[in-house]
């Protein structure tokens, strides 16, 4: 078998992925998956939040403030993950020009922005009694604030440019640049041994990882918030596809009337 034939076979094997970039196929697929996604999101979020709030013990060092991790850690995790999802979708747009991927990145931004804001607010509320201050220019906090500003800038750029393809191009470049701060937000505590923010809450090292009584509802909560993110992105991408279709049909009507 020739090399060319093998390369073509490998390419064909992955072609099914690109079929989902077809708006009609995406609407069909997301329409069928959404009810299950919503159900899974509600079940996991309710389970983790009720468990985390009502049934976790006080921590020796942190007292009842430990319950803040059930909203702070999942929102912070989604805030960073959302930007990485936008990065991948933006790269797909820049390389393969699939409109659904650009619209999915646009749809994810408000969700990521809300999660970043929630993580910043809950972090400040935890910091006040624990560190004695609402805010410190600590590497992780600062990179999170910059990530929040990137989200705002990304959304403002989409809103400011009329031509959707130009908007997708420029916001995709912004997503690539902003991924540096998303990366810093995630890993700043690992390589900058300074600042107030403690190390990662979850660790594969059993010594460092939090106790099982806190860990299990937290992992369910992170899963629930991730599912919430995917659900929101699906619904919002469907809305963006509809808005794009409305725009196209209105243009067609105007041209027919002229």
């Amino acid at each position: 078998m020739s090399d060319m034939h093998r390369t073509k076979q490998a390419r064909d094997r992955w072609n099914f992925l690109w079929e989902w970039a077809n708006p009609v196929k995406f609407m069909w697929f997301s329409g069928r998956v959404l009810p299950w996604l919503i159900a899974a999101t509600v079940i996991s979020l309710v389970a983790s939040l009720v468990w985390g709030f009502f049934f976790t013990p006080e921590a020796i060092n942190f007292g009842s403030s430990v319950k803040i991790i059930y909203v702070h850690v999942p929102t912070a995790t989604v805030a960073v993950s959302a930007w990485f999802m936008m990065l991948v979708a933006s790269l797909i747009w820049l390389i393969r020009r699939h409109h659904v991927s650009a619209l999915a990145a646009k749809a994810a931004a408000p969700v990521g922005m809300v999660m970043t804001l929630a993580a910043l607010a809950t972090g400040a509320m935890w910091g006040q009694p624990m560190w004695g201050t609402w805010w410190a220019w600590d590497p992780r906090l600062t990179s999170f604030l910059i990530l929040f500003l990137f989200y705002l800038g990304y959304m403002a750029l989409w809103a400011a440019i009329e031509n959707p393809d130009t908007a997708a191009d420029l916001t995709s470049v912004l997503a690539v640049v902003g991924s540096v701060f998303a990366f810093l937000s995630r890993y700043a505590v690992n390589f900058w041994n300074q600042g107030l923010h403690q190390g990662a809450t979850l660790s594969l090292d059993k010594e460092e990882n939090i106790a099982d009584s806190y860990w299990i509802p937290l992992v369910i909560g992170i899963g629930g918030f991730m599912l919430f993110f995917v659900t929101m992105v699906f619904i919002r991408t469907r809305t963006e596809i509809r808005l794009r279709r409305i725009h196209a049909l209105e243009l067609r009507e105007r041209m027919a009337d002229a």
């Binding site: 403030s65 803040i68 909203v71 929630a118 607010a121 809950t122 509320m125």
Partner: peptide
């Protein structure tokens, strides 16, 4: 702090 954090997030 706990109730405020939860209220803001929800």
């Amino acid at each position: 702090a706990v109730l405020g954090s939860w209220a803001v997030t929800l």
